Amino acid sequence: MNENYNISSSPHIRDKVTSSNIMLMVTIALLPATIFGVYNFGLSALINIVLTTATAVLSEYVYEKLMHKPVTIRDFSAVVTGLLLALNLPPTLPYWMGPLGAVFAIIVVKQLFGGLGQNFMNPALGARCFLLISFTGKMTYFVYDGVTGATPLAELKAGQSVNTMDMLLGTIRGTIGETSVIAIMIGAIFLLLMGIIDLRIPGTYLLTFVIFITIFGGHGFDPQYITAHLCGGGIMLGAWFMATDYVTSPITKKGQIVYGICLGLLTGLFRLFGGSAEGVSYAIIFSNLLVPLIERVTLPKPFGKGGEK
């Protein structure tokens, strides 16, 4: 035998796609929701987006410089975190709150646990929940077209009728990036076509949620009621852009199915029986905490190690 074989550690199969490529694609996919949010809510939305995203990048840069770590802002992960957080904020939020949340997301949730790939929950959602608990009044104050009021999802929970077409288009009260399902789905389709995500997690999530509200929502299989729930709140933004986060979701195919089921059940539980009309953020964070257990249960056994006799 004249061939020479190189012995090396895993991984043995490599791909040219890098973390920065993936994060850049996610940033591009978020642009339709971002642009519509600015169009829908005006200058205050734009200022919140710019300040929050810039603070996320700056926080990562300063922390890594102070800790004498390699600067990783070029991988776009801080941009994605800041942008996702901004899209989950009310457009009327005081301009200092978004940056405060960005610092919490980058420093507390991400960097203190080791940086990209080590955080145990989605940093943007962790920061949103931090702001929601700390400043509940400001985080639940919504204005659209000069009119203050509850979101359509809150009105739906209160038994009021809602306009599902307005919810689909996004001309409603809500956070900057969650209102337009059409804009969100344009970005989601882009990620699917680029192979960044697949249907396993979001598909299982949304299907489980629909089954749950059909059984326990008190309306049976009512298409208008189901559509309103799917178009209202952050379920679409969460399902396609946050539940699919590589770091905080399972790596096994079976685990992703179990993860999606957990997301659907928890979101339905929080929405129908909780005190808030929403529930996506908490559902994703709780499911993030279950990921190590899910992976432990669904991880394939190596050949010859504990397999069936």
Score class of each variant (00 low, 15 high):
257 I>L: 14
226 I>N: 11
270 F>A: 12
277 A>R: 02
218 G>L: 00
234 G>V: 06
267 T>P: 06
188 A>L: 03
265 L>D: 11
275 G>N: 10
263 L>W: 10
279 G>R: 04
294 I>H: 05
238 G>H: 12
263 L>P: 14
189 I>C: 14
190 F>S: 10
283 A>M: 01
218 G>F: 01
201 I>G: 09
209 F>E: 10
190 F>E: 10
229 H>S: 13
227 T>Q: 13
252 T>A: 03
187 G>D: 09
286 F>W: 03
242 M>F: 01
192 L>S: 07
252 T>I: 06
241 F>N: 04
221 F>N: 12
284 I>W: 03
246 Y>R: 13
222 D>F: 00
281 S>F: 09
200 R>G: 01
275 G>W: 01
252 T>K: 08
252 T>C: 05
254 K>F: 02
200 R>H: 06
261 I>F: 11
249 S>T: 08
223 P>G: 02
261 I>S: 08
253 K>F: 00
264 G>M: 09
234 G>L: 08
200 R>K: 15
214 T>K: 05
190 F>P: 10
236 M>G: 05
232 G>W: 08
293 L>Q: 04
225 Y>W: 07
224 Q>P: 00
192 L>N: 12
224 Q>L: 06
264 G>Y: 02
221 F>P: 11
278 E>Q: 13
198 D>P: 05
277 A>G: 10
225 Y>R: 03
202 P>M: 08
195 G>C: 10
197 I>R: 06
209 F>Q: 12
203 G>D: 13
271 R>N: 04
273 F>Y: 15
210 V>K: 03
192 L>Y: 12
271 R>L: 01
221 F>W: 15
275 G>I: 07
244 T>P: 02
250 P>L: 04
216 F>P: 02
197 I>Y: 03
294 I>W: 03
281 S>A: 15
220 G>V: 03
285 I>Q: 06
221 F>V: 14
291 V>L: 03
228 A>L: 04
259 Y>P: 06
280 V>I: 15
250 P>G: 09
215 I>D: 03
215 I>G: 00
251 I>Y: 13
248 T>D: 08
220 G>S: 07
287 S>N: 13
267 T>W: 01
216 F>N: 06
291 V>C: 11
250 P>V: 07
287 S>H: 10
293 L>M: 13
